[in-house]
Design a protein around this nucleic acid. Structure first.
Lengths: 113, 113
DNA sequence: TTTTATACATCGTTGTCTTATGTATCTTTG
DNA sequence: CAAAGATACATAAGACAACGATGTATAAAA
């Protein structure tokens, strides 16, 4: 089962930045698999969404890249820049605050209980 | 302070349905003010987003409307239909589940603590 | 009397994601 | 061994939601 994709909108960049903050370097396909695994298949990142996002992060200088070859196959690793680390933290805490507000609004038990 | 609006995307319908579940009948402007109040100005619903959403909910038969006049000014009240009540509950619990998953993914303290 | 608040509505633009498509290599399986 | 599936990148067309601007109109406050 997957969430109605509407909810996931706007969270992709945050997810990617957080994973990179935890893992030093990751490549695109690895990110999709990691998210699938961590969320027990509940969130599936499509490649059509991920790659443009990674390219945007790179254009914004939030990540740096390094290409490696596994046999003859290309693998493009992404790592957070200094700026990326800052933005990652900001995005994650913004998400946390937003979730608390939503919990309040939707009358769910708030985290501070 | 307002959240980077990206996060709010996809949650508007859920918010509206939840408010209507709690309040029997509300009109558009009232909804914008209620959300502002409940979230202490952290979430601001714009009219350009709200009215089309309300119209969509109506087209989907999730809400019924009734027009009233306050003096000479029109006010359009929205109420949940039976189907709307069901969908409201579904959307809210989907949102709750999604938030738990995101908390897990972002390594925030999960709600069950 | 002008500004602000209330109250509705639509429309063009933007941004994000989906779905589809394309290329290529490597591994597993019938 | 051939086909299918997994790994790995990428782009492009289209859908859809929300933003920001704009418009109309009434009521209240400054």
């Amino acid at each position: 089962m997957t969430y109605s994709s509407e909810l996931i909108k706007g969270t992709l960049k945050t997810i990617v930045l957080k994973l990179l903050a935890d893992n030093k370097k990751m490549y695109g396909y690895e990110i999709t698999q990691k998210v699938k695994e961590l969320t027990q298949d509940r969130i599936q990142i499509t490649e059509g969404a991920l790659y443009p996002t990674l390219h945007a992060l790179e254009a914004d200088k939030l990540v740096t890249t390094q290409t490696e070859y596994i046999g003859r196959r290309v693998r493009k690793y992404y790592s957070l820049s200094a700026a990326g680390k800052t933005v990652s933290k900001e995005k994650v805490s913004e998400m946390a605050a937003f979730m608390n507000t939503m919990a309040l609004l939707l009358d769910l038990q708030p985290k501070t209980r």
